[in-house]
Design a protein around this nucleic acid. Sequence first.
RNA 1: GGCCCGUUGGUCAAGCGGUCAAGACGGCGGCCUCUCACGCCGCAAACAGGAGUUCGAUUCUCCUACGGGUCACCA
Length: 548
Amino acid sequence: MDTLKLAALLFPDVTKTPEDMEALFPERDLPKGAVVSRAAPSPTGFVHLGNLVQGLTSERMSHQSGGILFLRVEDTDAKREIPGAVETLIKALRHYDIEFDEGATVDGDHGLYGPYRQSQRKDIYHIYAKKLVLEGLAYPCFCTEEDLANMRDEQEAEKANFGYFGKWALWRDRSIEDIEEKLSSGIPWVLRFRSTGSLENKIKFTDLIKGDLELTENDIDHVLLKSDGIPTYHFAHAVDDHLMRTTHVVRGDEWLPSLPLHIQLFKALGFRLPKYVHIGPLMKMDGNSKRKLSKRKDPELALTYYKAEGYPVESIYEYILTILNSNFEDWRRANPALPAADFKFSYKKMNPAGSLFDVMKLRDVSKDVISRMDAKKVYTDVLSWALEFDLEFASCLSKYEDTSIAAFSIGRGGKKPRKDFAVWKEVKEYMGFFFDELFTIEDSYGDEFSKDDIKAALSMFLDTYCPEDDRTVWFDKVKAVADSLGFASDMKLYRDNPEAFKGSVADISMFLRVAVTGKINSPDMYDVMQILGHERVETRINNMISSL
RNA sequence: GGCCCGUUGGUCAAGCGGUCAAGACGGCGGCCUCUCACGCCGCAAACAGGAGUUCGAUUCUCCUACGGGUCACCA
């Protein structure tokens, strides 16, 4: 085969050489051990947990080592192009603290190793495609979709392996005359890799997470360039990660099966193989079995879901860290106040198998995270959530800023902070009663209490209530009400002999609580009344008395 | 079906030839307590199965089972 002629036929416009590229994109000048890694998502408009897991791992490995993190947009599939997807992507990742040092930006590129959109790198890919053709390592294939469908049917019938190989590789050894003829009549073609691999041979490989692997060689002549001249993932991966000088490829382990092809490709192109970090999939429980989280079926895969639920970004970040590095939880317990970025992330602590995504655990993490925030921060975050998802609540929050912050301050900041909500969505239910606009009586008094007693308790309390009282004095007054109505003011006494009383001071408190908050359960009554103010407390209690 | 990866309590997971097999979430019970939310104490709960190697296997090897992934001109 005259490869010189073939290359000229296939790539008449390519004048540059791989050497030119090497000169254009030299090795990076970085300290030893610095990791160059990337996020390389395809812009489908759907940003999901997988992107975050991948991005976070790359980001930590790069930045912790003093290296570089860049963003490359893998937009080689014209059919899936969604306008605005890149912007969505960048914003979402930035939202979760993943900042890129270089790469695609909303309206262009930043960095010396671009372009960072694969759709703009066609010329570069063709230089290497031509090189492979010249070396007899790639060839054009003119099979139609129909040809390939037939191939597959036959393979199925014969119970043969699937794919373009062996006798099925129709164009692998065609004469240059055949090729020229097709070419001149304008038949579209793809460029295929001429694989020399065999199923008989194994290759040894070490993945940073999975450890030592033994893989079967690839014997399929995979497509390198599609008929529009745009590369497939495999070819783009090899060319880009080499020219962008990536040292560590972090990706989902669904790529493991094509790793033998990638290894072949790097070798054929004369590139040094990067390190690979294959992350296990995120799973969910589906009936009795686990399965990979799916874009189609699982709304909780999308990042927008967590935003709408009102999970703080810090919670998601911390939860993903606990999934990725099993020792993160211990570290967090030991260092509750440190930023998560101080944690020493290690791929050695990553689990080779997939993990089940556990919402209960996420909630627990989230409660912890929120309990560590100060009231002002909670207020700000809840407000910005509400502005997008609950306008009625948002208007109360901004109208009563001081009250809101005071409410968020209850039980916050101490050694044992309250953990009342895991997501912003739950905040309204927790503290909406502070706002007259949202206050309603939700719970009622049990039948075991007489209305007269309740009324008496409420008005007696009002008679003595003084907002200037401190906590102890306040509670002594509540106890006094209990005593005078035949309710126990001492809980121990009551527990020892409940029959001797109508109830206890706990019940008296409950009378007040329902009147003031509308609920059986609430944060500390003293604090609540302090925040509500004398006037509101009085009004609400009086309203309750007259409604009984 | 081929190829590959994985398998410690319900879930996330320590463990890296000798442990009474950590811890966390969830569950259950209790304590604390004016309710709730915390916090504290305790309980139940696991090395998929079978062969080897070894004085000794959760840990090493093989087989089986099960789970998952992947076999596109998608990434």
